[in-house]
Design a protein around this nucleic acid. Sequence first.
DNA 1: GATGAATGAGAGTTCATTCAT
DNA 2: CATGAATGAACTCTCATTCAT
Lengths: 206, 206, 206, 206
Amino acid sequence: MTTRIKRKEHLTKTRRKQILRAALSIFSTRGYGESTMADVAAEAGVGVGTLYNYYKNKRDLLISLVQKLLISEGLINIFDKMADQSSRDFMDSLLEERLEFGFDNVQTILFLFFEIQRDTKLRHQYVQDVVGPLLARIEEYIRLQIKRGDCRKVDERIISRAMVGTIIGSIILYRLEQHSSPFAKAHLKKITHELSSLFMSGLERK
Amino acid sequence: MTTRIKRKEHLTKTRRKQILRAALSIFSTRGYGESTMADVAAEAGVGVGTLYNYYKNKRDLLISLVQKLLISEGLINIFDKMADQSSRDFMDSLLEERLEFGFDNVQTILFLFFEIQRDTKLRHQYVQDVVGPLLARIEEYIRLQIKRGDCRKVDERIISRAMVGTIIGSIILYRLEQHSSPFAKAHLKKITHELSSLFMSGLERK
Amino acid sequence: MTTRIKRKEHLTKTRRKQILRAALSIFSTRGYGESTMADVAAEAGVGVGTLYNYYKNKRDLLISLVQKLLISEGLINIFDKMADQSSRDFMDSLLEERLEFGFDNVQTILFLFFEIQRDTKLRHQYVQDVVGPLLARIEEYIRLQIKRGDCRKVDERIISRAMVGTIIGSIILYRLEQHSSPFAKAHLKKITHELSSLFMSGLERK
Amino acid sequence: MTTRIKRKEHLTKTRRKQILRAALSIFSTRGYGESTMADVAAEAGVGVGTLYNYYKNKRDLLISLVQKLLISEGLINIFDKMADQSSRDFMDSLLEERLEFGFDNVQTILFLFFEIQRDTKLRHQYVQDVVGPLLARIEEYIRLQIKRGDCRKVDERIISRAMVGTIIGSIILYRLEQHSSPFAKAHLKKITHELSSLFMSGLERK
DNA sequence: GATGAATGAGAGTTCATTCAT
DNA sequence: CATGAATGAACTCTCATTCAT
């Protein structure tokens, strides 16, 4: 009995995931406004009506999708990996991990940014749950370095944003230039190293 | 006679601009797919039919709009101002000018990026006409500094992209955080200075 | 299962027929270009959107309609009835059957002719599938009569066309004069008899 | 002064003819409902606005066009040529003249029939001014032949319609079969002769 | 009188959503 | 719960008509 119910819940979750995955794929490539529920249904391999058994309407699907991405899909889980890392490693791992993830999900990320910035609620949520914590973490790190004397006196609130901005911007440039540039996944290590060096010596005390 | 024709041509150009301006405003805020031609017409203060006297269809309006923005609307005219500037000024003016422009046009820029990266032709055009020249210019500048011995040996192709990426990413972060951050127009000078310093000392020979 | 599917297929066919019938009615009276999909939907008693679940677009509806009429709606099934009939009966039944059908469907027929002759593909199909076989049949009949010596030497290719032409033209005249003439359905027998006599003695050996 | 006015009137007439000619060409090939005023204007070599200086609206243009065709464009002027002709010549000249004219203007004629039969007023006018007189003439001819004893007793009202119908139908068949049949302009003499013979001996006293 | 840009009513078409099966 | 045919509101686009030049 309980098992039956559990299985049912499990199935429901699976179905919801399946639909969200399809929606992400479709929305990312065509854009929300130009995607149709039929497209999503086809991609998910279910009937159109089924979508409405799991999501109230198209907009609900979008919001659910975005929130799911914000919360659980590796967009903020860097923290786990970042814990207790020494200075250079912190920078390196932050850059490498985020860039690799970014390069792998450019379309999704661009789609996310575009949708998030258009919806006040989503934007606040995103800033609060994702960007905020990430920035806080980096600010804290910089403050620590300054206190230690390893870093010159900088405005950590601005520098942290510059760093996150660099990651975001690099991902976008990668999408724009595609394979016609040194910003290819193949050179990820090289890129990480150059950026890391730039920031490290940029912050370093003279 | 000639005057009459000229006036007519002038009117046509004016009308086209008027429509493009309206389209930009609508598309930027609602997104292309969710904007209607009626919206655009209303914003432009003309009848719906009139739009079709100047643009073949909705997509044509979008493409024309994007191309117009790429080519003439100050997205690349930074070059004129940048000419013959000494090292620190180059960095400062690049950052300040681009950030200010970016902060003033976040929505437009995000809209542009989103549309450009979805259309292969536009993407190529953008890379070739806008991003490419800008990167070339920065690479050249870095190479020069290296040769002069003012800058340590770095991969100028990566660093140039990092710099452009930083600008792009900062603009996006600005849009996301809106007024709840130090990334506000009010602190533009401060921001410019911090970033400039970061890059300058980041590149500086130890 | 199979039954379920069969029922569905049946329903689909019924719906398609229902729509075609409505389209025929509307197109015949208003003309294709002046009919609207809303008209057709109303006549069929379905929503506008439904039309598009069965036909790609308005033109597709027209073409399907015309082809359906050409192929199956009794426009060529005269052959079954004509088989193995002696000379005078052949002529009589041909005339009577075709005239009656024509008088009953003038508008449809005129609409058909007008659309068919404007579309090369339809025209070829019509000639090949409908007019051609009918003419062949009549030519064969005439040739037989000539061989038998019951008929004087005539060019059967021209005479057959004259006979078919007479039927077509009579139908049109009937539509034009409407009830103000002896060409009324009431006098069908009389008309058939006069025409039959005309042709019979027109062909008869002197 | 009078000359000036006359010239003006002349110009006006010319312009009206020019427009009607264009309208006929466009309407005949595309059908009234699918033709646009812009099409007509382009064909006539004038601006769209000009059309409205000569005709109240699109429908007025159609009606004027049809009436013009009915009244003056050779559709009924056969009477002049037919006067005082002896029996066989009457039939021959009627057939040859009407068929030649028909073969040369199939599209126009089909367009005319289609439009006329859809408009009650036009239909009445057509029957009264064109078809009626033509039928009357043929009926009279047949009655005369019967009285003379050259023709067997037939219902001249039906036979006359059959003859006119044959002409109409032959023209339509010609359009449908186009060049793939013996109904080509090249064989006009042959056709005329066969038809004439058919009718003559069909009516002849045995 | 000639013109064609401007217009909006209205056409064709799409698609989110519902609901009977 | 899964489905997809039915639907009409809403969209894109067309085009007859007007009117300032």
